[in-house]
Amino acid sequence: MSIQHFRVALIPFFAAFCLPVFAHPETLVKVKDAEDQLGARVGYIELDLNSGKILESFRPEERFPMMSTFKVLLCGAVLSRVDAGQEQLGRRIHYSQNDLVEYSPVTEKHLTDGMTVRELCSAAITMSDNTAANLLLTTIGGPKELTAFLHNMGDHVTRLDRWEPELNEAIPNDERDTTMPAAMATTLRKLLTGELLTLASRQQLIDWMEADKVAGPLLRSALPAGWFIADKSGAGERGSRGIIAALGPDGKPSRIVVIYTTGSQATMDERNRQIAEIGASLIKHW
């Protein structure tokens, strides 16, 4: 067993022997301040990774656009098919120029040779490549099948209805392509620590998230040296922004954090800054 596999296998073990965790309302004060600064709703939840206990939450059962955070769930569904012998990570998928959609920095470079399922998941999570996500959605049967996968996990809230990039439209009061912070946090925890996926697939999923290259201005910008984070960000229309993450000190994750916002007129930089400040408060009061 590799060191990384050992780390993920012992996530519940280490967490069980940690000192009790206590909620700190100071972080919620910052979440509410972010709402004021952005002029928009902000949803927040913080779960203990081992027990699933909610440590703090704000608007945990209000719907927010998922945006690209759905790509972690998508690759979880792909990995479940791999575990069941219905898919192979090494299978190569070929596609054409007509398949390319807006923001496809990886797939646009491989029109000639195609990409493997493993490479597509890596591109979808680490670079948020939209064509990679659409190609992977095709392998599982489309958005409705991802929703069905989530329902089978016990998540009857999260739903995907459309493809990239239309799913980022974020129309107010439109339930399409949305989740709730509580539902997303619980589902992410199941994917990373539950028995739904094999140990190898859980490790692969967290490795992809740990290698995320496009979430630097968010929670990662607030992390002290030595902290662990595996995350996936999302951005959408109407001032929408979000991030889902597993993080913790001492090089291992111990909490799940989900943050979503929508309806702001603020710039992307300002949305990023507010999420980073929430992260800084979380870490300060850990």
Rank of each mutant, 00 (worst) to 15 (best):
I3W: 07
I3E: 06
Q4L: 09
R7H: 13
I11E: 03
L19K: 15
A23K: 05
P25V: 11
K30C: 15
D33G: 13
A34Y: 06
Q37G: 10
Y44M: 09
I45S: 06
E46A: 10
L47R: 03
D48I: 04
G52V: 04
K53F: 10
K53W: 10
I54C: 09
R59S: 05
P60E: 14
E61F: 10
E62S: 08
F70Y: 05
F70C: 09
L73D: 04
G76M: 05
V78Q: 03
R81S: 09
V82F: 07
V82D: 05
E87M: 12
Q88E: 13
L89R: 03
R91A: 07
I93Q: 05
H94F: 14
S96P: 07
D99I: 09
P105Q: 06
T107N: 03
H110A: 08
L111R: 08
L111K: 08
L111E: 07
T112R: 15
D113P: 07
D113G: 11
M115V: 07
V117M: 10
R118V: 10
C121S: 05
S122Q: 14
A124T: 11
M127I: 09
N130M: 01
N130L: 01
A132C: 03
A132T: 02
N134T: 05
L137D: 01
E145D: 11
E145F: 10
T147C: 09
T147V: 11
A148D: 14
L150N: 05
L150Y: 08
H151G: 13
H151S: 11
V157L: 10
N168S: 08
N168D: 07
E169F: 12
E169G: 14
E169C: 11
P172R: 11
T178A: 05
M180C: 14
A183F: 08
M184S: 03
A185S: 08
L188K: 01
K190Q: 12
L192N: 02
L192Q: 04
G194W: 08
G194F: 09
L196I: 15
L197K: 06
T198W: 04
L199V: 15
S201F: 04
L205W: 03
W208E: 03
A211V: 08
D212F: 02
K213W: 06
P217E: 10
L218Y: 03
L219P: 04
L219K: 04
R220V: 04
R220F: 03
S221D: 09
A222C: 15
A225K: 15
W227K: 00
I229P: 00
I229H: 02
A230T: 02
D231P: 04
S233K: 01
G234Q: 01
G236M: 02
R238M: 14
G239A: 04
G239F: 02
G242V: 01
I244N: 02
A245F: 03
L247R: 01
P249G: 05
P249R: 09
D250W: 10
K252R: 13
R255L: 05
I259G: 01
S264C: 07
D269A: 14
Q274I: 10
Q274A: 13
I275P: 00
I275L: 10
I275T: 03
I275R: 00
G279N: 03
A280C: 11
A280W: 11
